[in-house]
């Protein structure tokens, strides 16, 4: 092949390649809708932090358009323009509006919410815009539970304070008992005689000895409760499942201590209605708290939770 013929062959090959690539590009762009006419619509937003130029507008999960311009208005609002392909303008009707959804996971999405039964609106129209914040709505749902937790904890707090208060009925009774037992310390048989039976006097003596320790532990529990309460007061729970468990542990502890006091309260309670009432109140509060903790746990766990063997 002569040099000239080779040059012609290369030229033809290059030309055909360019033509072929141009057609391919054209068809790709056409398929992508680049040559399809688009229409502009707009909406006002309070902030542009959740979208940007190029953010897709979706309808039923399909992309029907995208944001192509964002303006800041003189009154501090954000004016957003978005383009919609001609074939998709049929979805933009009088009742259509845009919904910005902020999911718990993943990035925000803008969806067109529309019902096809209404008349289509003309391009350049301004649509309504709503924001659905999943985090905020969950906080709203969680609020009643938090309020309940708070009230139960406060109740326990009040009761434990009442238990440990020097003016509280338990402490007053204890102090009286202490005086009696001190007087009769040298005569055990007299204590037995007063209490009616040996077992009762033994119970009381043991309980008095352990009361101080119990009260100090109850006060520690109260302090822990107050710590948690502070977090609840701030309107935010710590980011962990530990909170319900912590509450649970504290309440279990209070329950345990209460059981320890049983011997004493039962012996004294016969003659002191206040103490019996106090004990019933605590048991009721603890029971309520347990129920509440179970419901909080139910919220954060799946229904098919099974016992896992260690």
């Amino acid at each position: 092949m002569s040099y000239n013929k080779m040059k012609i062959a290369v030229g033809i090959f290059t030309f055909i390649t360019i033509i072929f690539l141009s057609f391919a590009l054209f068809f790709i762009l056409k398929y992508k809708g680049m040559f399809e006419k688009s229409y502009t619509y707009a909406f006002y937003a309070n902030s542009a932090k959740d979208f940007d130029i190029g953010t897709p507008i979706k309808y039923s999960g399909f992309k029907i358009g995208y944001i192509n311009k964002i303006d800041f208005t003189y009154d501090g609002k954000v004016f957003v323009h978005f383009l919609v392909k001609a074939k998709n303008t049929k979805w933009i009707n009088k009742r259509a509006y845009l919904l910005l959804r902020k999911p718990l996971l993943g990035s925000s999405t803008i969806s067109l919410i529309a019902n096809a039964n209404y008349p289509v609106i003309t391009p350049n129209a301004i649509l309504s815009y709503e924001v659905q914040d999943d985090i905020n709505s969950l906080i709203v749902q969680l609020k009643p539970v938090l309020i309940n937790v708070k009230s139960v904890i406060k109740n326990i707090d009040l009761l434990t304070k009442e238990l440990s208060s020097p003016k509280g009925s338990l402490m007053r009774s204890m102090s009286n008992l202490e005086k009696i037992t001190a007087k009769f310390a040298n005569s055990k048989s007299m204590v037995d005689a007063v209490m009616g039976e040996k077992k009762s006097s033994k119970n009381i003596t043991q309980s008095i000895e352990s009361l101080k320790e119990i009260m100090s532990e109850v006060q520690k529990s109260t302090q822990k409760i107050n710590k948690i309460l502070k977090h609840v007061d701030n309107g935010i729970i710590k980011p962990s499942k530990k909170i319900p468990k912590n509450i649970n542990d504290i309440l279990e502890d209070v329950k345990k201590k209460l059981r320890k006091l049983d011997g004493l309260v039962n012996a004294v309670g016969k003659s002191d209605k206040d103490i019996v009432l106090l004990k019933e109140q605590i048991l009721l509060a603890v029971d309520k708290a347990n129920g509440l903790i179970n419901s909080v746990n139910s919220l954060i766990q799946s229904d098919d939770k099974k016992v896992q063997l260690p």
């Binding site: 710590k238 980011p239 179970n294 746990n297 229904d303 098919d304 939770k305």
Partner: peptide, 28 residues
């Protein structure tokens, strides 16, 4: 922080029934 807390709550709704609550309590 809120996100992490609420991830646990994602997908959950306030249920009125007691279905399976005993299983959860056993497991917990």
């Amino acid at each position: 922080a809120i996100l992490f807390t609420l991830i646990f709550l994602a997908g959950c709704s306030f249920k009125s029934d007691n279905l399976g609550a005993w299983k959860k309590e056993t497991s917990n």
